[in-house]
Each structure stands twice: as C-alpha cells, then as structure tokens.
C-alpha cells in the first residue's frame, strides 16, 4: 500500500515555481486554523482538525474528480447533481427496495461512472463543449432526482448505520469517520494515478496541449472520456459518503456543490486552463473552505452568507496569485526566441 506521504517523498518533480500555489494554500490553511485556535476556545484541538476531514469527506472526493477534469482543461458542472442522485439511489435502494447495501453502493458507483463516461463521450466524439455537456448532465441528474422523489428519504439500513455510527479510533482519544478514511484512501490512490501511471501523465499531456498529445500518439479522446468517468465515479462515491454523513437521500442535496469543488481546486493551485496543478492542492483547498465554515460555526455572530463572501475573496486572492506567477513565467519565456 502506497501512502500519500510515501508518494510525495518520491515526487518525480523537484520543488519549483509550480509548487508555490500549493505551499501558499498550505500556509493559508495553517494561518486560518491558527486564527481560529487563537480566537475560539476548543478550536485548536486535533479533533477539530480531524473533523475537517469528517465534515468534508464527500467534498474531498468530489474535488478529486474535479481536479482530474480541470487538469485536462475541462469542467464538470454535474458533480453536485450526481452527488444528490447517488444519495437518492442509496436511500431508495436500501430503504425502499430493501436491497443489500454493498450491492446498492456498487450499483450507484457504476451509474455515476457510466454517467460521467457518457458525458465524456459526448464531449469527445461530438465535440460539444464540456461546459454545455456537463450542464445538461447537471439538469438531467437533478431532474431524475426530483422525478424519483420530491422529498427527503431517510436511510434505514443496518450497514449504513453501522458505518456511519462507528469510526476509526486514533491515539489520544481522537476519531476519524470511515467516510473520512475512504476519502483519504481515494486521495492516495488519485495521487498515485496522476503521478505514476500513464493515465495520469496523459491527463497532464492533454491539458498541456490536446493537439500535441494526439499527434504524439497519446489516446487524447480516451483520456478525456476517462477523466469524466473518474469524475462521475468520484461524484457517486461522494454521494455515498454524503448519504452516510446525513443518513438520507434528498433531491435538493448538494445544490451548488460544483462551485465549492471548483473553488477548492482553484484555491489548491490548479490552473483552470489545464495542464498544471496538483491533487494535494485540491485537498488543501477543501480544508481551507472547511476551516472557514468551522470558524463561522464557532462564532455565532457571523451570518452564513459571510462564508460565500469569504470564499469569493479567497478565490480572488488565489487567482491573482496564479496570474502573478504565470505572468512572471511568461515574461521569462518570451525573452529568448
């Protein structure tokens, strides 16, 4: 089993300018967490930090898929709807149809993957823009949710209960939910795939220049279908985790989650034009968003809309930073030749 740390230590690329955004995100995470710790009692504890993973496990998983898609230069607007659809399917399958939970989960993951692959196919084979294709996917998945049921369905299933109510006990009396553990495993696998497999490198190549990738003999079309399938899979897995977290399926769950996922990926330093960025950055991006929400919940006086404004400000900061780095690199490059 290769852990994330293990992979990072033997990272194929030596630290350089491209890593700056990730370090800035890490710094920001530490900074916001310290601010929280200083301002609020009981904030600066290991458990609060672990709670970031527990409360955002689904978003971490969704952000993984989004990172793959954005690295190829695409975008996936359907993730929030697919999360909701997956939750609905979990709830209906286990609680209405009384099917065994592992079977239901397997089915949900297959549906999600197939859904993503279908969108990828439409984008690749018919050259419909990703924005539009995944928008249609977003409508479709949300529409199916609402068609299945207009109301929340709670999950009453032994397996789900058992997984949701138990957690991994860590030294020092801390705990980590199995959902969070799943998310961390997904992160490790994804980092491995991106850095150490041909699929991962093809993702970067396609994002750098699709035309070149194709002429170099790389399967550009297949890679694009794969990333949308991965994103579909991650959304479905995120949906399962969300269902575990809330023990219910609801057609209005995860509205706007695509924005959170995109924001996390951007804050994590991945460039939206594709080809540049690291998965670990997206995870840090999710954690930064998580810290902000935690701070707001610790501070009873701040209204919820400040979260959105804060995310907007952060987005602006990071995008401006990327521009700064990008502009410097460009000016360096254009000097010779």
């Amino acid at each position: 089993m290769t852990t994330a740390a293990d992979v990072l230590r033997r990272s194929p690329v030596t630290p350089n300018r491209r890593h700056i955004p990730v370090f800035v995100t890490l710094g920001l995470l530490l900074l916001t967490f310290s601010i929280g710790s200083v301002r609020y009692e009981n904030f600066g504890t290991p458990q609060v930090f672990l709670d970031l993973f527990i409360d955002n496990a689904f978003l971490i998983v969704v952000a993984i898929g989004m990172t793959f898609v954005i690295l190829t230069g695409g975008i996936d607007l359907s993730v929030g709807s697919v999360v909701a659809l997956s939750g609905m399917l979990c709830a209906i399958g286990t609680s209405k149809l009384q099917l065994p939970a592992p079977l239901v989960i397997l089915f949900v993951l297959l549906v999600g993957t197939g859904f993503g692959a279908a969108m990828g196919y439409m984008i690749t084979a018919f050259q419909v823009q990703p924005f539009i294709t995944t928008l249609a996917g977003m409508f479709l998945a949300r529409g199916v949710c609402l068609t299945l049921s207009e109301n929340q369905i709670s999950i009453e299933n032994g397996f789900f209960d058992a997984v949701a109510l138990n957690s991994l006990r860590l030294p020092g009396g801390n705990r980590l939910s199995w959902g969070a553990v799943t998310a961390l495993i997904a992160v490790a696998v994804a980092i491995y795939v991106l850095q150490w497999t041909r699929l991962g490198r093809n993702v970067y190549a396609v994002g750098g220049s699709e035309q070149s990738a194709m002429l170099m003999g790389l399967p550009a079309g297949r890679t694009k279908i794969q990333v949308y399938a991965i994103s579909g899979f991650c959304s479905a897995l995120g949906g399962v985790l969300f269902a575990l977290y809330t023990l219910s399926g609801d057609p209005t769950h995860a509205v706007g989650m695509e924005l959170d996922a995109i924001a996390a990926v951007v804050i994590g330093g991945t460039v939206l034009t594709g080809g540049s960025g690291y998965l670990i950055g997206s995870v840090l991006g999710v954690l930064v968003l998580g810290v902000i929400k935690t701070i707001l919940s610790f501070d009873g006086t701040l209204s919820s809309w400040w979260t959105r404004i804060a995310i907007g400000v952060l987005l602006f900061g990071f995008i401006a930073l990327q521009r700064l780095i990008g502009a410097r690199r460009k000016s360096r490059r254009s000097a010779p030749s």
Binding site: Y204, G208, S209, Q211, S212, A213, L215, M216, G275
Partner: peptide, 12 residues
Amino acid sequence: TVYQEVNLCPNL
C-alpha cells in the same frame, strides 16, 4: 513524425 510546429506538451 516531427512537425513544423513543435507538437509537444509545454507543461511537461
């Protein structure tokens, strides 16, 4: 094939 326009990936 090697083309006139360099068909490689600048980000790699």
